[in-house]
């Protein structure tokens, strides 16, 4: 009986160490919070949150949006390409950036100006057109800046250990066509399997 004590104690201790405080049952957690699942090969929600937070912080600190004659700056979101092997909507990044910029009072995003003439809000664009027709003048809002970018993935592997780097590249272009601010946030994740937490 005694000789079985060591393996039993070891198993109990190991399972205690590995299990932590988590349980297998479904429950709600903070989106992008400390309990979020972190994967190696995918962009997780907390990665979008971190990239948006860092990008907006640097953009506001640079003061590029403050250099407009009539603040707040008008921003149009251009193309943000997903160059990763994963399918996701890039609005997961751009919407977070837009919300933060809107909250800061430093920029307003137009929903009637879009790439190839496609408005994000078609009704708003139609109403804007009707108003302009009634007033017989072209008083449409032209953006001070456009925001474009790419999300790029770089993978590496050493034995069982996998590594992924996701680069969130953003450019803020003014009316002259010059990139007045550029930002790049890189998030590198390494591991053998997904885990809970950062």
């Amino acid at each position: 009986m005694k000789k079985h004590l060591f393996p039993v104690a070891l198993v109990a201790l190991t399972s205690f160490v590995w299990s932590g405080c988590s349980s297998g049952g479904a429950r709600r957690i903070d989106a992008g919070g400390r309990e979020s699942v972190t994967t190696v090969g995918h962009v997780d929600i907390q990665d979008f949150v971190a990239a948006a937070e860092a990008s907006v912080g640097k953009l506001l600190a640079a003061g590029a949006l403050d250099k407009v004659p009539n603040p707040p700056a008008i921003l149009a979101v251009s193309l943000v390409r997903n160059q990763t092997g994963q399918q996701f909507d890039t609005d997961l990044l751009t919407k977070k950036i837009r919300v933060k910029l809107n909250t800061s009072g430093k920029a307003l995003t137009t929903t009637t100006v879009g790439l190839d003439g496609v408005a994000e809000d078609p009704l708003a664009k139609q109403l804007q057109g009707e108003r302009e027709l009634e007033e017989k003048k072209r008083a449409g809002v032209t953006p001070d800046f456009t925001l474009s970018g790419k999300i790029i993935e770089t993978r590496a592997r050493a034995g069982d250990v996998r590594q992924s780097t996701f680069s969130f590249q953003l450019s803020l272009t003014d009316k002259r066509g010059l990139a007045v601010w550029e930002g790049e946030e890189e998030i590198t994740k390494q591991g053998k399997r997904p885990s809970v937490g950062f």
Binding site: G33, R34, Q46, A50, E53, G57, A61, K96, V99, F198
Partner: peptide, 19 residues
């Protein structure tokens, strides 16, 4: 919209966290 951000810091290293 406040984010919880991770940080890794090496031994005896000084880092600056900006916000």
């Amino acid at each position: 919209t406040g984010a919880i951000l991770p940080c890794v810091i090496e031994g005896k290293e000084t880092r600056y966290l900006s916000a």
